[in-house]
Computed example of a mutant assay.
Amino acid sequence: MTFYVYVEPDAERRSTAGAVYSEYGFAIVDSLADLEYHLPRNPETLLVMIGATVDLEEALTFAAYQRVQRPLLGVIVLRRTLEPDVLARAMRSGVREVVDELDAEGIRVASARSIDLSKALSTTLRSSPDVQRAKVVTVFAGKGGCGKSVVATNLAAALCADGSRRVLLVDLALQFGDVAIMLQLPPNRSISDAISMAGKMDEAGLRSVITPCRPGLDALLAPSSPAEGEHVSRELVTEILEVARDMYDYIVLDTPPAVTDQVLSALDLTDWFVPIVTPDLPTLKSVRLTIEMFDLLEYPRDRRLVVFNRANTEVGLSLEDVEEAVGAHLSVHVPSSRDVTVSVNRGVPLVLSDPTHPVSLAIRKLADRCAGVSSNVESRRRLFALGRKR
């Protein structure tokens, strides 16, 4: 991880001052363009020190943009001479301090102050009840045909809670995503349209590539061409999710049946891990490997909700057999039903077309677990609502 960055186009300064800064953990880049490439790949960065030969207008523009997009990021500008008008303009642009490039002690003190401020702001934002970032729920299966996309689309619709929550459904199956066809959405916009915005993604940019589904539910679709998906980088996925977490209450990720770089970047930001199990030996093996991978990556066990899909299928495997095979407790049991296929062909999630269907009730139980809501309370609310409609 890189917490500090020093930007200096001048090769001589980079070799002298840069050598000193690198000993303190600074990454060294030679332009603001390289810095724009560096930051999305290092979202934990707390401090950027802009060298004296960087154009002042470009430095101030960068600081003004980052003040809104990344308020935790501190910007210090080094100058050869300190002029009053430069100091005033820098402060208005969001620069935390302007320091003489030869004042080593001043640079050290300014850096320490800026880092302390960033850490304090981070703690304040995390503890503030008014600041809620979206919970990321990743639905994953090690092989195809498990009903993963059905679970993901229905889960997103259930979390939406009739429009009272904001939910983004992201199709990370970049080569052969099914979300668009399952929800009958026009593939006019997709995640591949965000490629040109890599390194500078913001809320307006993300909104330009999402597709509204219904009140409270949006979708970020997979590319219509498999070739386009190859150009969606891990870093872009991270950047999209970081921006989306400030726009939504929940983000549901439908993933491919493979552990790609893009999937790993999503898993690193995930709050709830939802592996899908079906009662067949190849799937049980793949889920066991998935659970072991989660353990290896130290993803928290109490944040895993294993879904037993087609749980009522009679294939000679008991519930105990399945749990022993995958090495995990099965949190939610979703029964098999032909109505699921009918709902997929209609393009309407079953939780919306038939809220009291056994499959819908199971998915809503999963949604309640993700939302931290008591299923019993929610069930009473729904029954009361149904009673009033009659």
Rank of each mutant, 00 (worst) to 15 (best):
Y6A: 01
V7E: 03
E12Q: 15
R13V: 06
V20T: 11
S22R: 10
G25C: 06
F26S: 07
L32W: 03
L32A: 01
D34Q: 13
L35W: 09
E44V: 12
P84F: 11
A88M: 14
R89P: 04
E97S: 08
E101V: 04
E101T: 02
E101W: 07
E105A: 02
A110S: 03
S111Q: 02
D116C: 05
T123M: 10
T124F: 10
S127E: 14
S127G: 13
S127A: 15
P129Y: 14
D130Y: 15
T138R: 02
A141I: 07
G142Y: 00
K143R: 13
C146D: 06
T153M: 09
A157E: 06
G163S: 08
A173D: 15
F176H: 09
G177N: 11
G177S: 11
I191F: 11
D193H: 12
M201P: 04
D202S: 06
E203A: 13
G205M: 02
G205E: 06
P212Y: 13
C213V: 14
A219Q: 15
A222K: 08
P226W: 08
R234P: 07
E239Y: 02
E242I: 12
M247F: 06
Y248V: 01
V252R: 00
L253I: 15
P257D: 07
A258G: 01
A258D: 03
L267P: 02
V274L: 00
R288P: 03
R301W: 02
D302T: 08
R304K: 05
L305Y: 04
E314D: 15
G316N: 08
E320F: 10
E324F: 12
G327P: 05
L330S: 00
P335N: 07
R338K: 06
T341M: 03
V342L: 10
G347S: 08
C370R: 09
R382E: 13
A385P: 05
A385L: 04
G387T: 11
